[in-house]
């Protein structure tokens, strides 16, 4: 795995407090799991940035190695890997996601 893709990923998560690596984009998700995370973030009115792994094979493999996580989507909040669709969904339903955003100083609507 090239150093540069890891540097690109690190730069993305440093620059964007809520960063979603996904298939497709927020307007047109290309996978049901990615779509669900977009839906949750949108519903909570959290500003977020996305990167489309389908447009970038190096990123697609790179993000898996970077995170030590074999599936997409992957949500990062303030540089920390929160999880994929299951974890984000569970945390949303339990209220933990709202708490996390509050703790990180990110404005969200429950």
């Amino acid at each position: 795995m090239s150093e540069t893709v890891f540097q690109r990923i690190q730069a993305e998560i440093d620059a964007n407090p809520v960063m979603l690596f996904m298939k497709g984009n927020a307007m047109f998700p290309q996978c049901g799991f990615s779509a669900r995370v977009v839906q949750i973030l949108s519903h909570m009115q959290v500003p977020f940035q996305t990167a489309n792994v389908l447009e970038d094979p190096e990123l697609r493999e790179g993000i898996k190695a970077f995170s030590n996580w074999p599936t997409i989507p992957q949500l990062y909040v303030k540089g920390e890997m929160v999880g994929g669709c299951d974890i984000v969904t569970e945390m949303y339903q339990s209220g933990e996601l709202e708490t996390l955003f509050a703790e990180k100083g990110i404005k969200a609507v429950a």
Partner: peptide, 9 residues
């Protein structure tokens, strides 16, 4: 949660 998932992965 992340640690549990990683263990399964």
């Amino acid at each position: 949660r992340v640690q549990r998932s990683r263990a399964v992965h």
